[in-house]
Amino acid sequence: MSIAVENITKLYGEQKALNSISFSVKKGEIVGFLGPNGAGKSTLMKILTTYIPATEGIAKVNDFDVITNKTDVQKSVGYLPEHNPLYLDMFVKEYLSFNANVYNIKKQRVSEVIEQTGLTPEAHKKIGQLSKGYRQRVGLANALLHEPDVLILDEPTTGLDPNQLVDIRRLIQSIGKDKTVFLSTHIMQEVEAICDRVIIINKGEIVADKALKDLRDGKEQTVIVEFDYRVEDEFLLKLPNAISVNNTHDFVYEITFGTSQDMRSHVFDFAHDNQLKILQLNQKNESLENLFRALTSE
């Protein structure tokens, strides 16, 4: 396993930031670690990168224990923290070369990560002159310098504009072809765009662990339909595979079906047979946002 977490608990005084959480990440997976602010995401990432110790439990990266094999873990991990620490008065290439010397890495590697992260046009600028999107690229380049097997990224797209978001997403997806990526965020769209799997944490506890494919290919679906006239629920429940009906307002109904088959044609036929006009007809499958709200709302 690239990452293995077993019964990790973290206390700050009497406050419990993490409460006996366990999960594992296979080699080559891109996993989104999703949760509201204060849920414990950054705390776990700091434990996995050896910045802070857990109060209880065991955590391993590439089979190295984060307590007893710190140096091996640090060699295995590329880390981009939430607040990307950069020397703004240094030039991009100068900053990366400085860190390469710390790692005792050949200077050729600096040129490779600059090209890999799309920094070539900005390589001779001072970091303080760069947009936030390019500063994030510098952070990613630095995390990749020592060719780690595992990338741990804490809120890598926070504060970026839409164009920068797309660029960083593509970059992370490209990196994820060769490495395990553990990505923390509170933005559902990031997980849906980048990840193979999502782990949701709330109040220090894991409340969901799902493959994105399973979430998209759910066995239930909800169809939203608006008629031009009120229809009794009992008639709509006679539709094939219908399991519940909710009249949300006026003549708008949410019909839940116990099948992944698209049932909108059946609703259309029902309206035609009963001389009803359809004003809107949409499919509302379970989404990551709906799951997140259901599991993290007060």
Score class of each variant (00 low, 15 high):
Leu165Asp: 03
Leu165Arg: 13
Val166His: 14
Val166Trp: 08
Asp167Pro: 05
Ile168Val: 05
Ile168Ser: 04
Ile168His: 01
Ile168Met: 04
Arg169Ile: 00
Arg170Asp: 14
Arg170Ala: 12
Arg170Leu: 11
Leu171Pro: 04
Leu171Asn: 03
Ile172Asp: 00
Gln173Val: 08
Gln173His: 07
Gly176Arg: 03
Lys177Tyr: 08
Lys177Cys: 01
Lys177His: 13
Lys177Gly: 05
Asp178Ile: 00
Asp178Glu: 15
Lys179Gly: 00
Lys179Ala: 04
Lys179Asp: 03
Thr180Asn: 09
Thr180Leu: 04
Thr180Ile: 05
Thr180Asp: 04
Val181Pro: 01
Leu183Trp: 05
Ser184Gly: 13
Thr185Leu: 07
Thr185Asn: 06
Met188Glu: 03
Gln189Trp: 05
Gln189Leu: 13
Gln189Met: 12
Glu190Trp: 08
Val191Phe: 06
Val191Lys: 04
Val191Asn: 08
Glu192Val: 15
Glu192Lys: 11
Ala193Glu: 10
Ala193Leu: 06
Ala193Met: 08
Ile194Tyr: 04
Cys195Ile: 08
Cys195Val: 11
Asp196Arg: 08
Arg197Trp: 10
Arg197Val: 07
Val198Asn: 04
Val198Phe: 09
Val198Leu: 09
Ile201Asn: 00
Lys203Asp: 05
Lys203His: 10
Gly204Phe: 01
Gly204Ile: 05
Gly204Pro: 00
Glu205Pro: 03
Glu205Thr: 11
Glu205Lys: 08
Ile206Phe: 07
Ile206Met: 02
Val207His: 06
Val207Lys: 02
Val207Gln: 01
Ala208Ile: 00
Ala208Gly: 10
Ala208Tyr: 05
Asp209Leu: 02
Lys210Cys: 06
Lys210Thr: 07
Ala211Arg: 10
Ala211His: 12
Ala211Ile: 08
Leu212Pro: 04
Leu212Val: 09
Leu212Tyr: 03
Lys213Trp: 09
Lys213Leu: 12
Asp214Phe: 06
Arg216Phe: 12
Asp217Lys: 14
Gly218Thr: 10
Gly218Leu: 10
Lys219Val: 10
Lys219Leu: 12
Lys219Ala: 12
Glu220Ala: 07
Gln221Lys: 11
Gln221Phe: 11
Gln221Cys: 12
Thr222Gln: 11
Thr222Cys: 13
Val223Ala: 01
Val223Trp: 01
Ile224His: 14
Val225Gln: 05
Val225Met: 07
Val225Arg: 05
Glu226Ile: 03
Glu226Ser: 15
Asp228Gly: 08
Asp228Val: 01
Tyr229Val: 09
Tyr229Pro: 05
Tyr229Arg: 15
Arg230His: 15
Arg230Ile: 12
Val231Asn: 06
Val231Pro: 00
Glu232His: 14
Glu232Thr: 11
Glu232Met: 13
Glu232Asp: 15
Asp233Ile: 00
Phe235Ser: 15
Leu236Thr: 06
Leu236Ile: 03
Leu236Asp: 07
Leu237Trp: 03
Leu237Tyr: 08
Leu237Asn: 07
Lys238Ala: 14
Lys238Arg: 11
Lys238Met: 13
Leu239Arg: 07
Leu239Lys: 06
Pro240Met: 11
Pro240Tyr: 10
Asn241Ile: 07
Asn241Arg: 11
Asn241Gln: 15
Asn241His: 13
